[in-house]
Amino acid sequence: MSAEESGKSAELRFTRDMFRAAVFDDIGSEDIGYTNYSYWRSTIRTFFKSMVVRVMVVIVIAIILMSFIYPILSKTDPRALTTNTAEWNLRPSADHWFGTDTIGRDIWARAWYGTRNSFLLAFVIACSDIGLGAIMGALWGYSKKADVVMVEVYNVITNVPSTVYLVLLAYIMGTSYLTLFISMASRGWIVEARFFRNRILSIRDNEYNIASKCLGTPVRRIATKNIIPHIISLIIMETALCVPYSISSEVFLSFIGVGMPVDAITLGNIVNHGRSSFTMHPYQMLLPTIILCMVTISFYIIGNKFADASDPKNHI
């Protein structure tokens, strides 16, 4: 009856009292020990764990702040052109930090005004794409009847090259913010809708949704309580990814000449303008291109990293 007594128990002094029955504790027996895990806290923690993400978030915030504060504080008029040829194509100096363009406008000022405008445009487009996409995607995913129709709509919209109707629209309506918005928003939502439809399809037949159905929960409450909390992180992620996409589309459309009117100050126009004089004065393109790259790259990385962080599998 001897035993290999472990070190810990050898220290303990045994008394007969210890070998008596203990009182059974009902609550204690149910205590499994639990973690104070919270989905959102863990998502944000995992998200900010990465150094790259922190740097990118700082860059994005800095650029956004700058683009909104600069136009308020600065007295430089980004549209102020001059007939004085001595003021044209100036190299960077104390007066003009990044020089002036071919008609003497200050590039530093134009770049920030342009960033602000491009941002606003991209943000409006992202909101409309994701908003419309999520709602339509939910209907598409939930209703079997809608599915047939929506698949065809999706095929038609995505199979017509967007540049074709963009060029048409630009000719009919003339180039403006509205034209650009209509042309981009008319197409982006369907791609998002399909993305959300696939996600909702995989959530829809989960047992807890069937349980809600058995309990007689109305569809509206199933949507707000069972579906949306599970896709909200996807909505954030898609919005983050949509912003750089919209900005670069705007640049591309300006490049092929169907984007914004020439007098509008957007990143696309500035880059395009700088490009025409690139061989003579390469610095004119420098600043807007750097901002453009930083914005698109950081938004892209932030979006992807957020997607990773929002997956519970990565919460370790």
Partner: peptide, 21 residues
């Protein structure tokens, strides 16, 4: 197992039992 054992002894809550033969 002590918290779930209605016949647990006081010592079960205090020290880990060794392996007996």
């Amino acid at each position: 197992f002590a918290p779930r054992n209605p016949q647990a002894m006081l010592i079960d809550f205090k020290a880990e039992p060794p392996l007996y033969k």
